[in-house]
Design a binder for these strands. Structure first.
Lengths: 185, 185
DNA sequence: ATTCTATGTTCGTCATAATGAACATCGTTC
DNA sequence: GAACGATGTTCATTATGACGAACATAGAAT
């Protein structure tokens, strides 16, 4: 089933595009010449906006009108530590789990990230089409784009678009994770 | 300049799609569950409809949402008897005027139409992508799609999309015209 | 000519979208 | 901790889109 009401479509779309631009609800409202309350209600699925309202939003977000009616593609992939396609026999002393294959025409840089709780590391958007793959080694961390962060425990894998603001936030001391940045070349 | 307000875009689009379907304003209104007055105001460029209203219209017209925001391409070509690109010297005893060239992949059937005043001949839509070329030989006739009829005198040429309801109406006795139907094959 | 049915328009009323102030929360700074 | 700024939410009020009846007009049928 794919029958969403226009309300829901728009609610998702506005939130998606807004967070993609890294704009706050208040900021978007004032730039678009709308009341905060109006936006708030729209993003929560309530309301039935007029086209002038939508037009102002689309222009301010610098997207085409129809973008506001497109369904949000997840663009993320989450594989928990106990999930995934395992390679190797059940009795073997080692196991490998395929987390993501490598598309041709992409380059991958590997980082190790050491995090301590309390400080949320916010990363500015990378070039369009960039993805990040994150695997937690030690501890627990909240990772991902602003609009779709995930709580990851040791062994969990998360892939998300990195061409928008995203965060790394450790929940335990000594948290370590591996981050692979995937860029098109 | 291509900066139309959403109002105008929608006004044009609704009228275009409605007449393309051959629906009356009242009929569309009742099918879409809207008041006639609402549609009337929208089509006259006044008003600032809500998305629920637009959604109902789009669904009833069986078009995608974004269709209602597309600009209306004219799709018609009108060359009066004294216009057009003439071939041959000015002193020659004959002149030819190129009215339309023949795109590859199209087939053209030629008809002669004899009309008398008083009876409006309404033609039902032909397959999508069909065009008609009409040249009046004798008399005067009103020809074209419902939303864009043209008064043609002898020698006038008119090309219009025929995948929607269109009419031939003679204004003088003994009116004759040549109609070429262009279909994709 | 007269009625009847369809067309699209205009208007007063009502429902509701948009507003702005007040509110609640959270981080940051002093 | 207190004060501050920015976040997004909730509410009353106001502006306005949607409605439906009445209207004007045109064609067709009687």
């Amino acid at each position: 089933m794919d029958s969403m009401t226009p309300n829901d479509l728009i609610a998702n779309a506005i939130q998606r595009e807004r967070s993609r631009k890294g704009l706050s609800l208040s900021a978007l409202a004032s730039r678009a010449g709308l009341a905060k309350s109006t936006l708030s209600q729209l993003e929560s699925g309530k309301g039935n906006p007029s086209i002038e309202t939508l037009w102002a939003i689309a222009e301010t977000l610098d997207v085409t009108f129809s973008t506001l009616f497109e369904v949000s593609k997840p663009d993320v992939s989450l594989i928990r530590a106990d999930e995934g396609a395992r390679l190797g026999s059940d009795h073997a002393t080692f196991q490998t789990t395929l987390l993501a294959n490598c598309p041709t025409g992409t380059r991958r840089d590997v980082y190790r990230v050491d995090l301590e709780p309390g400080s949320t590391r916010k990363s500015t958007p990378h070039p369009a089409g960039t993805f990040e793959h994150a695997v937690v080694c030690v501890g627990q961390a909240r990772v991902g784009p602003l609009e779709a962060t995930e709580m990851l425990n040791a062994g969990d894998y998360y892939r998300y678009p990195a061409d928008r603001p995203h965060v790394y936030e450790a929940m335990e001391p000594g948290t370590q994770l591996i981050v692979v940045m995937e860029t098109r070349d």
